[in-house]
Nucleic acid binder design. Structure first.
Lengths: 228, 228
DNA sequence: CCAAAAGTGTTTTTCCTACACCCATGT
DNA sequence: ACATGGGTGTAGGAAAAACACTTTTGG
């Protein structure tokens, strides 16, 4: 581990960490990577991330590290800045300030390879993502709080949905994000009144029951409109 | 201007900038400081700020710079992180990443010296704070948007109020922050129902009219409760 | 014909909005 | 007595919450 030189006095190592979420089978998942940095963090797990280069913005660094470490193409993602963590000893090896990001991706938009779990990167239910390296437990907690909060007053949830979905599927994703059971009739009335969905000219049959009407979000934009 | 060395490859200069607001005479004010950095920013103005030292958090740096450059004691302030600005060329002299903060202080809690305007630091109505150095116009715009947004669904406004105030004063501060005229009767009903104020056992007489009941915020904490 | 999820309406209660006059005081 | 800001109530409309049965399909 290197000693700080005089030159470093006003410099710090700048990094990004990303809480990347997706939803599969009504379960909220977060992308984790293996971390093996003895002696402090041998053989453990953490959020994907890495250093910010001098010639790139924090956003560009996030995209780069997601592609190389988490195996996810940034172009399909929604990314927003979360919080900057600057506690002096958050990395025991030296001063590292992390600009953390919240990212979302629809499960169906991931390739089979991206959906798969390897020993280097995998999807974990958020309820099981604990004991992370560095201060990643805290970063994840902040990311979850932000996701849950913004899901209630923006159209952020749209970035977790596939292109086409049923109202029941949308309701389930809401329920898994905000951890609350919703009333089917009231949910449908509210979400349709918001005028953010478009009815598609087809239905999906998926079992021994009535086929469900398909919808899509009218806009890709995340709007700040009261929901729920 | 210095050339980047190999050593700097993963390092950046880290700084903080602060949008510090207060309210005087129902006018929202922001603290500005003089900036004189030729050739890019000769004889202009900007938000207070400065570098983050390797041994301090961003929050500690904010407090330090507010005291030395803006002449305001950090202990009386409310400070929350706003956003991190990492555009590569936001400072033409070199790579500087800024962790920006939003800060609030009740006007009455400032000393006469802190209230005073000098050539180095002064209070300006937000409507007149334009043409700032660096990307401080953008930082100020983000800070104002955040302040206005959070004022509507948190008790943030409490950090702009003196210890004791009348409901009319509180209403005026709301109006100056969100730039909207409110209905006196509805405002009083709503704010009292929220149960965040405590009625004090005294009134304030201030002219040829009925004295006004004094209140205080029951808690110093900024809570996330629907208001307005 | 049975099981399973899709889809639909009404009533009750709560909250929001609009709006105008009397009260207590200082001069 | 008058001018000034402090203080109060109600009615109508909109939105939220609670709640159960019918429809369409596959097997």
């Amino acid at each position: 581990m290197k000693q700080p030189s005089q030159k470093d006095l006003h410099f710090a190592v700048l990094a990004t960490d990303v809480a990347l979420f997706s939803v599969r089978d009504n379960m909220l998942l977060v992308r984790l990577v293996s971390v093996n940095r003895p002696p402090y963090f041998p053989n453990t797990q953490g959020l994907p991330g890495g250093l910010i280069d001098p010639k790139e913005t924090a956003e560009e660094a996030v995209a780069r590290h997601l592609e190389t470490k988490a195996g996810v193409a940034a172009s399909t993602l929604y990314i927003e800045q979360l919080y900057t963590f600057s506690t002096v000893n958050r990395d025991p090896r030296g001063r590292v300030v992390a600009v953390a990001y919240l990212a979302l991706v629809p499960w169906e938009q991931l390739s089979a390879k991206q959906q798969a779990n390897t020993k280097d990167a995998w999807w974990a239910p958020v309820s099981e993502a604990r004991k992370l390296a560095y201060d990643h437990d805290e970063i994840l907690a902040v990311a979850l709080a932000r996701l849950r909060s913004r899901a209630t007053y923006t159209t952020l949830i749209g970035r977790l949905m596939p292109k086409e979905f049923t109202l029941t599927e949308l309701e389930h994703v809401y329920e898994s994000v905000i951890k609350t059971k919703l009333d089917k009739r009231n949910f449908r009335k509210k979400i349709l009144k918001l005028d953010i969905l478009s009815e598609l000219p087809r239905k999906r049959a998926s079992g021994p029951h009535r086929p469900a009407q398909l919808y899509r979000f009218s806009s890709e934009k995340v709007r700040d409109i009261e929901v729920l």
